[in-house]
Each structure stands twice: as C-alpha cells, then as structure tokens.
C-alpha cells in the first residue's frame, strides 16, 4: 500500500503541484491546451497556509473514510485492497454530504457539473502528478506496510504530528 507523505517544512507554496494536478485531470493533459478547456480543469490538491508553514494537501484516502460513509448516492467507495477512496462522477449528485464531513477539506465542487471532485492518485501514472512536480520534494510516494495500521494512520495525518 502506498501513501503520499507530506513534509511541511519543505513546501515553499510554489503551487507547481496544483498546476500539475489540474493538467493531469484535463481533457488534453497538456498545459497549453488545458488552459482553454471548458469547463476549465480543476486541481484536486490545495496548498494551505498555516501560521508557520505552508503545505500541500490532497485526499488522504482515510481508513474508515467519513466521505464514503456520508455518500448518499454510492458514488464514493473504498477499494479494500489498495485502500484508495474512489469517486464515480456519473453517480455523484453533488449533494455535499462528503464535503460536510471530510476532516481534511479536500473534496472540491465542480458547480456547473453538480459533482464533487477528488484526488484519484493519478491512475494513469506511476508517480502521481503532484508528487512528480514538486521541486522541493515536499511530497513523496512511499510504500507503507499494509498491516501496520498505526503506521498508516501516521502517514495519513502526518502533517498534524509534525506541527504540534
């Protein structure tokens, strides 16, 4: 099982990850044509500003994910093997129940399409676009032992522990 690890002190808030994510989730997957697409491509990663640090944040693919339990249409589900939380756009009705419950605030809305959007870990890539694009290596994709639950939790919320 792989997780995206975030190292707060390395982030310089350059937002390369945001751009890379939007491009990877565009029709063309090319920066220059993506800019002109309608609807405009939407990033599923966010650079957050804190009191002392900036840091990038995308879906943590939580164990016992609150968004999945909140989903009233069956659009969100969790793959038991990979642990990834998947979102099926054509089942989503944009009801916002998941947005109301996600403790990380990483589900975003595409208001024209009436759906939410979230990190899908870039299924077409070996390394997710955000991780690959980060110039300071603030993010890395790391193998986490499947059975080490505690360890996994640490990775999920790793930015919290570092903070306090």
């Amino acid at each position: 099982m792989k997780e995206i690890l975030i190292q707060l002190e390395h982030c310089v808030a350059c937002k390369s990850c945001v751009l890379a994510c939007a491009v990877e989730h565009s029709e063309s997957k090319e920066l220059f044509s993506a800019i002109f697409e309608t609807p405009p491509p939407v990033a599923r990663i966010f650079v957050e500003a804190g009191e002392e640090f900036n840091f990038p944040l995308q879906c943590r693919h939580c164990e016992e994910a609150k968004c999945v339990k909140a989903c009233i249409s069956g659009a969100l589900w969790q793959d038991k093997e990979s642990g990834l939380v998947h979102h099926e756009k054509d089942k989503c009705i944009g009801c916002l129940m998941c947005v109301m419950l996600c403790p990380f605030g990483v589900l975003t809305q595409a208001r024209e399409e009436k759906v939410v959007l979230k990190c899908d870990r870039c299924p077409d890539l070996d390394i997710p676009a955000c991780v690959a694009s980060c110039p300071t290596k603030a993010m890395s994709l790391e193998e986490v032992p499947v059975h080490a639950r505690e360890k996994r939790k640490e990775y999920l919320t790793n930015f919290k522990e570092q903070w306090s």
Binding site: M100, P103, G105
Partner: peptide, 9 residues
Amino acid sequence: NRKAGILTN
C-alpha cells in the same frame, strides 16, 4: 465550502 468538513469535525 470546500473546507466545511474541517468545521464539522
């Protein structure tokens, strides 16, 4: 409202 869930929690 992206961050509403943070408030709920």
